[in-house]
Design a protein around this nucleic acid. Sequence first.
DNA 1: ACTAACAGCTAATACGAATTAGCGAATAGA
DNA 2: TCTATTCGCTAATTCGTATTAGCTGTTAGT
Lengths: 351, 351
Amino acid sequence: MSAARRLTQRDIAQLAGVSQATVSLVLNEAKSAEGRIPPETRERVLKVIRETGYVADPIARSMVKGANRILGVFTYQPAFPIAQADFYTPFLMGIEEAAETLGYDLLLMTASARDEKGRKRIFGESGRLRLADGCLILGSQFDRDELAQLVASDYPYVAVGRRDDAGGKVRYVGADYITATTTLVDQALAKGHRQFAFIGTTGPAESIADRWRGFQSALKGKGALVHVDDVENGDPARQVAEVRASGASVVFFAEVLEAVAFDTYARAQGISIPGDLSIVVLGSGTRTHTLRLHRAFTCYAIPREEMGKRAAAMLVETLADPSLVQQVMLQCEIVAGETLAPPNPTKDSLK
Amino acid sequence: MSAARRLTQRDIAQLAGVSQATVSLVLNEAKSAEGRIPPETRERVLKVIRETGYVADPIARSMVKGANRILGVFTYQPAFPIAQADFYTPFLMGIEEAAETLGYDLLLMTASARDEKGRKRIFGESGRLRLADGCLILGSQFDRDELAQLVASDYPYVAVGRRDDAGGKVRYVGADYITATTTLVDQALAKGHRQFAFIGTTGPAESIADRWRGFQSALKGKGALVHVDDVENGDPARQVAEVRASGASVVFFAEVLEAVAFDTYARAQGISIPGDLSIVVLGSGTRTHTLRLHRAFTCYAIPREEMGKRAAAMLVETLADPSLVQQVMLQCEIVAGETLAPPNPTKDSLK
DNA sequence: ACTAACAGCTAATACGAATTAGCGAATAGA
DNA sequence: TCTATTCGCTAATTCGTATTAGCTGTTAGT
């Protein structure tokens, strides 16, 4: 049985006493209603197909048709890293849901995305990209040159996350961090905060830059930015000390993990949050994720699943009309949380 | 540019002034060292390839070679369901890691796995299965007929999770629930427990059946099974009442979520856990997951990532030698937790 | 000098399905 | 009865690459 070559249309044709072309016509009948096949012949062929369990080879089929009903998923980091299991997952959940609805399979380009030097590259020598009809690109840090190449090519793609122009408008489904960030800054202002601190990097990724830009412009003329710590994985002890010394009454974080470390350390020092110091997180995972992980930070929820869903849908639209270049921004939902309160009037942090 | 047909070897050949066959030979040179191409011709062709950025069409290539370097992933439920986000994810993390190392991409058969009636089927009419060189099958509940069909076919597959024979030995990488369960029962016995309760279904999935079998056989002759609740999503209030009435001093759960509900309700009723009643969970997610979600139940950790990794590796071995039928069982790590203590001597639950 | 061997390349074919052009027979039209 | 038309089907071609058989021209061997 192992040597039993896979059935082909020729085999079916022979069994049914017709030609290979007829078998193909029966299989794709809906098409050219012209050269119709009479019901009896049709049935005879279908009977053989049923009995043998024949299915057309998808590779040969896509070779001649040029399409696969496959969406590629390219990630600039491993899609399921142990360390950050929850980063891609929500996107993928949305992507999968949409793909299933739309009738597409998903090709995760885990291996072929690496070039000979092991770097992640979209246009690898393998050309595996072509296996998919189009592709979704995930990751906070894009390679600008590759993105430009992609934009210039006629290959259908959609980026998950807003992207600056790269030699042309980039197709994307992003989240509106600027509006959400502005809302949170306004809330802090409304509660009376005037001295702000910001901890987190400010670029170069668009998602990070947007947070920083939104923060700055919302604050402009209405509050003072008294401390900025532009580091990744900083030392909480130092951060807490510096923030306290700066007189800030509220700290904004670009990264939830930083906030967790800060919060944990500050409490251990007897600092009341938000009594003595408010904490606001710009972003963080999905709602469920946020609630589960730690305490409920005041933050906004990035609609990751929805982004994945919309991106997949947009990609499929693009397949139908390759000239289409859409850019969609989704709103983030504000999560009230419990770490933003009016500043403590006894502290000198309130002017 | 949009109409610019993709480059083919014929184009390259023309530009380099050679034949298409020569281009192909240059690309795959390592092969038949016989009809060697002299360095100068080789260089000329490679130069054109470099300048044009040509890459071979993977579809045409796999059409003639018959292999794709793609591993299919078939799931009996959506791979990333919102509700149970963490069920497949750990497996996929392992699978992805192995696939990347081994140089394979992953094809998630989300859409093509459904037949015309919307049911999940491995052998769909689409025949998309053939797009992958082989396939990994996930899900607790397999369709026996399909599994038998798979076993009988010459299609390379590996099941993640132990599977009973289905017209032949099934290739799988499973977790040894029986041994792990036995260990936990023995621990409970060693602490003095004699009256046991069991909450959870007992089949038909192998993973569930193994827990139940292990539980029963470990208990045989050494302790009494005073209460069994064979339901999914039971009512915690009723469960707590019945367990208390039964006089059991320890409850075993087959499903962590049931344990969470039970635990939460019991504590609310003023029942001390494990003071008045011990709880043991058979299974649960990965270590990280377990620790994060709720309190630290006494349980064992299913090595999901490792299972995914090994399954992918086994599948690749199978591709090389299709006659191979391996069955691997991985050990579960016992998590001490804090919900198993000696029975309360003041209660009548201790004989 | 005449064959043998070989280097360097190309023509031809296969892979499996889709699709087009068109053939032969039957029927319709005049 | 002779030409159109339609029906029912098939031969031939295509997609892009890999591979084999083999052709041509040069060199080696005797």
